[in-house]
Deep mutational scan, measured.
Amino acid sequence: TGEEYIAVGDSTAQQVGDLTFKKGEILLVIEKKPDGWWIAKDAKGNEGLVPRTYLEPYS
């Protein structure tokens, strides 16, 4: 379980453990880390770190 967020920009994984996503994708945020990198899952079930500045709450 988690909260749904929509990507407001494209982000390409810079290192192992990062999640690549495109603008408009809905991501499920699993954990919000205080350093600004959140753990999220995409629609295909891929999981990784995403920069919170690229996400907005999805409603």
Rank of each mutant, 00 (worst) to 15 (best):
S11P: 04
V16F: 13
A7I: 03
Q15A: 12
G48C: 04
V8I: 14
P34G: 10
N46C: 07
G48W: 04
G2N: 08
N46G: 05
K23N: 05
G17Y: 05
Q14F: 11
G17L: 05
I6E: 04
T12I: 13
V16W: 10
A7R: 01
Q15T: 11
P57C: 07
E25T: 06
I26F: 05
A13H: 10
G24H: 04
Y54Q: 14
K44W: 14
Y58D: 05
D18Y: 15
K22Q: 08
V29T: 00
G2V: 10
K32V: 04
A43Q: 10
R52G: 15
A13F: 09
A13W: 12
D35A: 03
K44M: 12
I39V: 14
A13M: 08
D10Q: 05
E4C: 15
D10Y: 04
E47C: 14
T20C: 10
E47N: 06
E31Y: 11
N46T: 07
N46H: 08
G45K: 02
I30M: 09
T1N: 12
L49Q: 09
L28G: 02
A7H: 02
F21K: 01
K44T: 09
G36H: 04
V8L: 12
L28N: 06
T53W: 15
I6L: 07
L49H: 08
W37H: 09
A13E: 09
E56S: 07
E31T: 09
A43K: 11
I39S: 04
K23M: 07
D35P: 01
A43W: 09
S59I: 13
D10L: 03
K41H: 07
L27P: 00
Q15N: 14
V50F: 01
S11N: 12
W37K: 10
Y58Q: 07
D42H: 02
E25F: 04
K32I: 05
D42A: 03
K33P: 07
F21A: 01
K44D: 11
Y58P: 05
Q14P: 08
V29Q: 00
P57H: 06
D18V: 14
L27V: 06
E47W: 11
V16Y: 11
A13V: 08
K33T: 09
L28D: 03
N46R: 08
P34C: 11
W38A: 02
V8H: 04
L49N: 08
Q14V: 12
E4V: 14
P34Y: 09
K33F: 11
P57V: 07
E47K: 11
D35F: 04
L19F: 05
T53Y: 13
D10S: 10
A13P: 10
D42G: 03
Y5L: 01
E3M: 10
V8R: 08
D42N: 11
F21Y: 05
T20S: 13
D42M: 02
G2D: 07
P51I: 08
L55V: 05
E25Y: 04
Y54T: 08
S59G: 12
K22F: 09
I6W: 05
D35T: 06
I6N: 02
V16P: 14
A40S: 03
N46Y: 06
G2L: 11
A43R: 11
D18P: 05
K33N: 11
G17N: 07
W37R: 12
D42L: 02
Q14H: 12
Q14C: 14
P51F: 15
Q14L: 13
N46V: 08
N46A: 07
T20G: 09
E56G: 03
F21E: 01
V50M: 03
W38Q: 00
E56N: 05
K41M: 12
D18Q: 15
A40D: 00
L55N: 00
L28E: 05
V50R: 00
K44C: 13
R52S: 15
E25G: 03
P34A: 13
Y5G: 01
R52N: 13
E56R: 07
E25L: 02
G2I: 09
E31A: 11
G45T: 01
E25D: 15
I26G: 01
L27F: 05
D42Q: 02
G17C: 08
K33E: 04
D10F: 04
Q15V: 10
P57D: 05
D35H: 05
G9C: 15
V16C: 12
K23T: 08
L55C: 04
P57Q: 07
Q15S: 12
L27M: 06
E4D: 06
P51S: 13
G48S: 02
V29K: 00
E25W: 07
P34R: 08
A43P: 07
L19V: 03
K32F: 06
G2K: 08
E56F: 06
W37Y: 12
T53A: 14
I6A: 04
K33Q: 09
I6F: 06
I30V: 09
A13I: 08
A43M: 11
K32Q: 06
K23Y: 06
A7W: 07
T20V: 12
V29P: 00
I30E: 02
W38S: 00
L55R: 00
S59K: 12
L19H: 02
T12L: 12
L49K: 13
D10M: 04
G2F: 13
W37S: 10
